[in-house]
Simulated scan of single mutants.
Amino acid sequence: MFAYYADHFVLPLPEGHRFPMAKYRMLRDRIAQQLPGVALQVALPAADEDLALAHTPEYIDAIANGTLPPAAQREIGFPWSEAMAERAWRSVGATVAASRQAVHDGVAGNLAGGTHHAYAHKGSGFCVFNDVAVAARRMQAEHAAGRDGGSPPLQVAVIDLDVHQGNGTAHIFQGDDSVFTLSLHGARNFPFRKEAGDLDVDLPDGCGDVEYLQALDEALAVLEQRCTPGLVFYLAGADPHEGDRLGRLAVTHDGLEARDRRVFDWAWQRRIPLVFAMAGGYGNDLEDTIQAQLTTWRVALQYHQRWQNVRP
């Protein structure tokens, strides 16, 4: 199973910055040690024309040339640097590459990504570009180029299980019937002004395994009624975990694994290729975040094997 990464582009963050940049390299190292079935691949930068499928030319230029105003940099949460721009391009490139691989193999992922707070015209909440939005548009374009006149356009479902609502993704795809955005998130968590997605499920502070998994089951049932996707993007945030300092929920490691299995199994039962990204994770003990993410990759590898067993 292919996994794409760009963690060697480390942002020069100020001392004491709250973003746990080290988690990406930690996860890659752990996968290399424990999951030999995962093929680690360096992500190439996304093409500018791909970024333009979901972002405005002015915003892309501002990130490329370092002309982003200070207020816009503060909203993102990262100061601009060449490394910041390079990483942003490659993080999107990782999800685009994983999408193409998932269409071929059934499952593939990005060791980072899930940057769902980025809008078409701006970044926010540690998100520069919206990797899933770009990749969804790119895969729809490639599907359209390769289909005959009788086949339908590619329908895409975004299953966003980061603890924060995917406001940027929801805004980019508002009014677009070809993309269904599903988000389970903390009702009282960032972003405090939510955007309307196709299905938004607000969860109370302290929500535990039973309530969380019931909400997910109900959401997946609604998704099936309202969308017939040909491709699924899964944002497997580790931040619903009870030990996350930004999460406010109380989902255990067992609960997160059950969550992952529900999503992968939902796609597998319908033979829908699935692309996944790590999205958020801010454990008080960073090992909790890495453990949750490693479990996601272990589950993904099991479902990838199922795909290989049925392929001709």
Rank of each mutant, 00 (worst) to 15 (best):
W80F: 15
A72F: 05
R147S: 07
A72S: 13
V96K: 06
V128S: 06
Y119T: 04
A118D: 04
R100W: 10
R137F: 07
T95Q: 08
S91L: 14
H117L: 07
G123W: 05
T115G: 02
A102S: 10
S81I: 13
V132C: 08
P79R: 11
S99E: 05
A97E: 05
R137G: 05
V128D: 03
C127P: 06
A102E: 07
G66V: 08
R137P: 04
R90M: 13
N130W: 08
R137D: 05
E75I: 07
A85E: 12
P152G: 05
G66T: 09
T115V: 01
D148V: 07
G114N: 02
T95R: 03
W89H: 14
V103Y: 02
A88G: 12
A97M: 11
T115E: 00
Q73M: 13
Q101M: 14
H104P: 00
S124L: 13
A72V: 03
G77K: 05
A136T: 08
Q140S: 09
G149Q: 13
P69G: 03
G66A: 08
S91C: 14
G146Q: 15
E142R: 09
R87E: 07
S151H: 09
G150F: 13
V134W: 03
V92K: 03
A120R: 11
F78P: 06
A120I: 05
M84R: 15
A83E: 15
